[in-house]
Design a protein around this nucleic acid. Structure first.
Lengths: 190, 190
DNA sequence: CGCGACGTTGATTTGCCTCAACGATTGTGG
DNA sequence: CCACAATCGTTGAGGCAAATCAACGTCGCG
């Protein structure tokens, strides 16, 4: 477990073993079962989760009562409701385990003290924020440019890790397509 | 000019006058005329621009040859092509002055050295990245949930600074509407 | 003045949604 | 271990938001 996060951290910033130990000791390993919630609507998201194993989804309920998935996350990703976590405002979204998962939980208050004790961590999370931003910009661009069918083929080709482990109706939701129409798209190609 | 950026910096992190001076001295004031480009497609974006005055747009050319605006920026915003700037990859987008503008230009290499000399700046740009991320997440959510007409009224109500100074076809492009349909929407409400 | 940039209108088309119904598969309690 | 209920995916009919295409009006500017 420690090796996994150490290798992740050192991908972006060099930490020595003592630093890793100090930071790692502040993280709390937790498990959640399939369908269990890490966060519900109206709660303030106090934690950032590093996924050791499993898949998680972030979604909200739209005006018609339908779930709309805004993010999937998998092994070695940090996941939280960014807006709620950063601004400490009530979440409009749910964070839920799609499979049984294991995560390392980092609380906001712990993170703030760690920033002061270990300035390098500030750099790490600046880089992480930048990477998340770029990922989100790319996703927006994708949705701007592509029709439903293209989005689906893109998903299957570039996000196959999810495509194989997530039910179809969740893929449809993430791709902003109705399950019915996704079904039609799948029929119309071989 | 210095006062403007000082007040901006101190909104997020406390810098003393010496620090502001040191950082400010590394920024280069530049002006661009209306329609002048700060960045063109295929170039690597080496600068991050702090807008002192004016409006800038970020856009790409889609497969049909139409301009698609992904971002407007105005006084006291940082603007760049994040992906190109961070990853040092060729830009797929153009950055262009919508009006005559004045900016403070900060090069990537300068920023990297400043991060080391002034660790507080790392914190500032972590916070800026987080804020940009949140703004982008909000924008995506908006587009996910709203129909064209709602997007337009939202734009007029919440981004009136732009609505008044930007031609209609650019607003249409930003809102992912054809100019024709936007025109129709405007007709159908008084 | 004349040209190009910008906005408007109307006719037609289309991508995708809604609703309703029905198989197939999974899982759970008796 | 079977029965019945959810859950999940598929089909088809009908409808609507918004795009496309083509043409025309208008204004500002060189």
């Amino acid at each position: 477990m420690k090796a996994q996060i150490k290798s992740y951290f050192n991908r972006y910033v060099d930490f020595n073993d003592e630093e890793i130990d100090a930071i790692y000791s502040k993280l709390e390993e937790k498990t959640f079962q399939k369908k269990e919630f890490l966060l519900k609507e109206n709660m303030i998201c106090r934690h950032n989760y590093f996924i050791l194993k499993g898949i998680v989804r972030l979604f909200y309920i739209d005006s018609k009562g339908h779930e709309k998935i805004t993010l999937f996350a998998i092994d070695n990703w940090w996941v939280t409701n960014m807006e709620s976590f950063i601004k400490e405002t009530p979440s409009t979204q749910y964070l839920q385990a799609v499979e049984d998962i294991t995560v390392l939980s980092l609380s906001k208050t712990t993170l703030e003290t760690l920033y002061i004790e270990h300035p390098k961590l500030e750099r790490l999370f600046r880089i992480i924020a930048e990477n998340m931003l770029i990922a989100n910009l790319r996703k927006s661009d994708l949705f701007l440019q592509m029709k439903s069918k293209e989005r689906y083929t893109f998903f299957v080709e570039h996000l196959s890790a999810f495509a194989q482990r997530v039910p179809q109706y969740m893929i449809a939701s993430y791709l902003e397509i109705t399950p019915e129409y996704l079904s039609e798209l799948r029929r119309n190609r071989h």
